[in-house]
Design a binder for these strands. Structure first.
Length: 763
RNA sequence: GCCGCGGUGGCGGAAUGGUAUACGCGACGGACUCAAAAUCCGUUUCCCGUAAGGGAUUGAGGGUUCGAGUCCCUCCCGCGGCACCA
C-alpha cells in the first residue's frame, strides 16, 4: 500500500469524530485517568510547532491509557484573556472578543488536523461569561476569607502615552511603543495573600510526583529562610529599625546598617545636611529594576542618611546608609551589615570606606538573647498582584461604597459582564478603560443601597488559568463551578504537562488556588496535580528562539500538509529528549516520513511464519515502548520502533498477528497510519478499540551475550559466549584471547567480573 | 546578577558507574533506471595503518574508582525563570 496522507488524515479524523470514542465518561466503572496539557493562549499567529510537542506526548499517554482499559479525560480549552488581543484592539478598534473567536477557531482547526484525542465536548474558554462568572465567584471567596486586600504597588508608567505598561512592554527601561523612559508610579492594587500558603506550597511537594527540577525551582522561588528580626534603636530618636538577618550569630561584626531606598523611615532618618545627597540617590535608583539592583558585578552605590543606631548586642554606635542592594519588599527592607561575613556587605564597605572588623561568632540562641530579637521566617515569595488596569480581563466583582467600604457583588448578580467600550486605550490617569464608562462604574451599594462605584481593574490572565482543570470536569454546569460528586470522581489530575517557563507562576498560582478551594471545602484534594512533567522549548533550526518578528516561526499546518499529521506527531516527540530545548530540523521531519512510509509497506512482508529474530524484536519493542511512555522518553520509543521495522526489512517476513501487535503500539504515536494499515489488513474496527499489548519475558532473553574484555579498564577484546557462562571458564577464555594475552605483561593483581557484561584484568 | 537546567560525531541525539556514538539526518559507494527522482542494500567519531591492529575522544582543568559521558571540585559557554507576556 502507499501512504497518501492527504486523504488518510481526514478519513480517520472523521471516523473518530463519528464514533465519539474520545469522550470521557462521568459514570464509568473503569478506573479514571485525567491527563492534562496546559491550554494555549490563542494568538493571532496560530499554532506554533512548540504546542504539538506537549500535546502529542500527552496524546500518546492518553491513547495508551485508553488501550490499558482506563476511562480517560483529556480535555482542551482556551486561555483567551490577555494583552495581545487588547493591543490589537487598541490599534484597530476591533473588539478583542472578535479576534479571539477567530483565533480560537483557527487553533481548533489546527489541533483537529493533527488528530489529537481531545474530548472536544468539554472545551472551556476563560473569556466566556459562563466561565468567568466562576472566576469572579472564586475571587469573592478569597475576598470574603480576608485573603484579598488593597495595597500600594509600583507600576510601570509611560509619561508620554500616559498608560501603565506590562513588564514585557518595557524594553531596556523604555516604553516599547514610543521609546520614552518608563517611570515607576504608585497605584492601589488588589493583592492576594499567597504568602500565607508559602509553607504548605513547599511542604506538600512531598506528596506529589513532580520532576525534581520542578520541585527545586518552586522551593527556591518561595525561598523560605529562617532567621531573626532584631531592633536597632535610632540615636536621638524614638524610632527603631527592624532588620531581618539569617546570621544573628554575626551581630558583633556589625559596622553599619543599610535600609532600602523605599524604606518608610528614610525621610525621618535623613539629616538636613544629607538631604540633597539622599534625595538625588533615591532619584537615581527609581528607574532601576530589581535585577539591576542585585547585580553584584557592578560597583555598589548608596548614600549616608546622617543617622546612627545602637547595636543592641554591644551598644556600639553604627551609621545608617541607604543602598539599592537592599530591596524594600524582602524581609524588613533593612539589613545589618557584617563585612567580615558577607561578600556584598564587604564590597559596599570597601566602596564607602566603612570599617571592617574581625569579631568572634556567637551562637544563634545567644545572639537572640543578647539583642532581644525574635526568630522569624522570611520568604522570597511575594503576594500576588491581582489588579490590571486593562480592558481584556475578568472585571473584579467589587463595589466601593463610601459608607460600607468594599462590598462584594452578590453571587446572584455574577457575572459582572465586561461592557463594550468605544476606546480600548487606558485612561490618562492610569485607570482601566472601564473607568470611562459611567453606566458601568456608577451603581448602588448591595449592602446599603446608596450610590457606589464599581472596581474598574480587571484580573490578570493567571486567574482563569488557575482553575480551568476544575471546569473541564463539569463544563456546562450553571449552578456550580463543578459538581462535588464529579470533582471527587476525577481529581486529582493524574498527569499534568506544561512548559518549564510556567513552573514558578502558573503552576504555583494554580496549586495555591486549589489549596484555598480545598480549605473552603470546595474541592476534594489539597494538591490538584498528582504528577507534573515539563517539556523544553522548540527552537528554530539555528538554535535561536522562534519569533514572529524574526520570521522564523514554523507553522504546523505546513508540515501537516506536506508530510501528514503523523509525520508531525512522530517528529515532535522523536526530535530530542522531551524535557530539553531542541532545535527544529526539517531534515529530521523527512526521516520520520520515511519511517512511516516503511511502516505502510510492512503488509508486503506478511508470511505464514517469521524469523525468531522478528518475534524477539517485537517483544523487546513492546517492553521498551511501554517503559518509555511511562518515563516520558518518547524519542527512544520511536527509535525502538524504527529498529523493529528495520529488523522486519532485514529478515524479510512477519506474521499478520505480529504486525497487528506492532500497529497497536504504533497507533498512539501515528494513529492515522496505524488505522490505515490495519484496515488494509482487513481490520474493520478502530485501532483505538484494541488493547495495549503485553510482552512475553521468556521471548526477550538472549541466549548469547557479548562480553567486553578489559586490561586495566581499557577495552582489548570482546567474546561472544553463552548467557550465564560460569565465571571460571569465562576468565580462562578471556585470558587466552591473543588480543588480551599480549597486554597481560605482568601478573594479574585482581580480576573484576560483571556478569554477562565485562571482565577486567588489573595488572 | 540571583535561582533552575544543560554541554557527547559534520548535525538532532542514545548510553541502571561497566563495549561511548543506538535511532534519525547528512555524506559517500552500490543496485534499480535511457537518465533523474523515489526506493532498496552497504559504509560513515577522529588520527595512523592495505589489513590485523594501535592511539585519541563526551565544553576546559583537576579528583574519586579496577573502570567516569555518568559521582565530586574549580572554571567556561548555552537555555529557562526573575513576579503586569502567556
Amino acid at each position: 500500500m502507499s501512504y497518501n496522507h492527504g486523504s488518510i488524515d481526514a478519513k480517520w479524523q472523521a471516523a473518530w469524530a463519528k464514533a465519539q470514542i474520545f469522550r470521557a465518561q462521568d459514570d464509568s466503572p473503569k478506573e479514571k485517568y485525567y491527563v492534562l496539557v496546559e491550554f494555549p493562549y490563542p494568538s493571532g499567529a496560530g499554532l506554533h510547532v512548540g504546542h504539538p510537542r506537549s500535546y502529542t506526548a500527552l496524546d500518546i499517554v492518553a491513547r495508551q491509557q485508553r488501550m490499558l482499559g482506563k476511562n480517560v479525560l483529556f480535555p482542551m480549552g482556551w486561555d483567551a484573556f490577555g494583552l495581545p488581543a487588547e493591543n490589537y484592539a487598541i490599534k484597530t478598534g476591533i473588539h478583542p472578543s472578535v479576534i479571539t473567536k477567530e483565533n480560537i477557531d483557527n487553533f481548533r482547526r489546527q489541533l483537529k488536523a493533527i488528530g489529537f484525542s481531545f474530548d472536544w465536548s468539554r472545551e472551556v474558554n476563560t473569556t466566556d461569561p459562563a466561565y468567568y462568572k466562576w472566576t469572579q465567584w472564586m475571587f469573592l471567596r478569597f475576598f470574603k476569607a480576608g485573603l484579598a486586600y488593597k495595597s500600594t504597588m509600583a507600576i510601570n508608567w509611560c509619561p508620554k502615552d500616559k498608560i501603565g505598561l506590562a513588564n514585557e512592554e518595557v524594553v531596556g527601561g523604555k516604553c516599547e511603543r514610543c521609546g520614552t523612559a518608563v517611570e515607576k508610579r504608585d497605584k492601589e492594587q488588589w493583592m492576594i495573600a499567597i504568602t500565607k500558603y508559602a509553607d504548605r506550597l513547599i511542604d506538600d511537594l512531598d506528596t506529589v510526583d513532580y520532576l525534581p527540577k520542578i520541585k527545586k525551582q518552586q522551593v527556591d522561588w518561595i525561598g523560605r529562610s529562617e532567621g531573626a528580626e532584631i531592633d536597632f534603636a535610632v540615636v536621638d530618636s524614638q524610632e527603631k529599625i527592624t532588620v531581618f538577618t539569617t546570621r544573628p550569630d554575626t551581630i558583633f561584626g556589625v559596622t553599619y546598617l543599610v535600609i532600602a531606598p523605599e524604606h518608610p523611615l528614610v525621610e525621618s532618618l535623613t539629616t538636613s545636611e544629607q538631604r540633597d545627597t539622599v534625595h538625588s540617590y533615591i532619584a537615581s535608583v527609581a528607574t532601576k529594576t530589581d535585577m539591576e539592583r542585585g547585580d553584584d558585578t557592578k560597583a555598589k552605590t548608596g548614600a549616608f542618611t546622617g543617622s546612627y543606631v545602637i547595636n543592641p548586642a554591644n551598644h556600639e554606635r553604627v551609621p545608617v546608609w541607604i543602598a539599592d542592594y537592599v530591596l524594600g519588599h524582602y524581609g524588613t527592607g533593612a539589613v545589618m551589615a557584617v563585612p567580615q561575613h558577607d561578600e556584598r556587605d564587604l564590597a559596599f564597605a570597601q566602596t564607602f570606606n566603612l570599617p571592617i572588623v574581625d569579631r568572634p561568632l556567637i551562637s544563634f540562641a545567644d545572639a537572640l538573647a543578647k539583642t532581644g530579637g525574635k526568630k522569624t521566617v522570611q520568604y522570597k515569595l511575594r503576594d500576588w498582584v491581582f489588579s490590571r488596569q486593562r480592558y481584556w480581563g475578568e472585571p473584579i466583582p467589587l463595589i466601593h461604597c463610601d459608607h460600607c467600604g468594599w462590598v462584594p457583588v452578590p453571587d446572584d448578580q455574577l457575572p459582572v459582564l465586561l461592557p463594550d467600550v468605544a476606546n480600548y486605550q487606558p485612561t490618562d490617569n492610569g485607570e482601566s478603560p472601564l473607568a470611562s464608562i459611567d453606566s458601568f462604574v456608577n451603581t448602588k451599594c448591595p449592602t446599603c443601597g446608596g450610590d457606589a462605584k464599581r472596581e474598574t481593574d480587571t484580573m490578570p490572565n493567571w486567574a482563569g488559568s488557575s482553575w480551568y482543570f476544575l471546569r473541564y470536569i463539569d463544563p456546562n454546569n450553571n449552578n456550580e463551578f463543578a459538581s462535588a460528586e464529579k470533582l471527587k470522581h476525577w481529581l486529582p489530575i493524574d498527569l499534568y504537562n506544561g512548559g518549564m517557563e510556567h513552573t514558578t507562576l502558573h503552576l504555583l498560582y494554580s496549586r495555591f488556588w486549589n489549596k484555598f478551594l480545598f480549605d473552603q471545602g470546595l474541592v476534594p484534594t489539597s494538591e490538584p496535580y498528582a504528577r507534573r512533567h515539563s517539556h523544553g522549548l522548540i527552537m528554530s533550526e539555528d538554535g535561536t528562539k522562534m519569533s514572529k518578528s524574526v520570521g522564523n516561526v514554523i507553522n504546523p499546518d505546513d508540515i501537516v500538509n506536506e508530510f501528514g499529521a503523523d509525520t508531525l506527531r512522530v517528529y515532535e516527540v522523536f526530535m530530542g529528549p522531551f524535557e530539553e530545548p531542541v532545535p527544529w530540523s526539517t531534515n529530521g521531519v523527512v526521516g520520520v516520513r520515511r519511517f512511516l512510509d516503511r511502516v505502510t509497506k510492512l503488509p508486503d512482508f506478511i508470511a505464514p511464519a517469521e524469523s525468531p529474530d522478528v518475534t524477539k524484536a517485537l517483544h523487546k519493542t513492546i517492553k521498551k515502548v511501554s517503559e518509555d511512555i511511562t518515563n516520558f522518553r518518547f524519542n527512544t520509543a520511536v527509535a525502538a520502533m524504527m529498529t523493529f521495522v528495520n529488523t522486519v526489512f532485514e529478515q524479510g517476513s512477519i506474521t499478520k498477528p505480529s504486525l497487528l501487535t506492532f500497529l497497536a503500539i504504533l497507533t498512539p504515536f501515528a494513529p492515522h497510519v496505524g488505522n490505515e494499515v490495519n484496515e488494509a489488513l482487513g481490520g474493520t474496527s478502530l485501532m483505538e478499540a484494541g488493547n495495549w499489548p503485553t510482552f512475553d519475558p521468556a521471548l526477550i532473553v538472549d541466549s548469547e551475550v557479548t562480553i567486553a574484555i578489559q586490561v586495566n579498564g581499557k577495552l582489548r577484546s570482546s567474546l561472544t559466549v553463552a548467557l550465564d557462562l560460569p565465571e571460571s571458564s569465562l576468565v580462562t577464555q578471556a585470558q587466552s584471547d591473543p588480543n588480551v594475552a599480549k597486554f597481560l605483561i605482568s601478573p594479574i593483581k585482581k580480576t573484576i567480573v560483571v556478569p554477562n557484561k565485562i571482565v577486567n584484568f588489573v595488572i
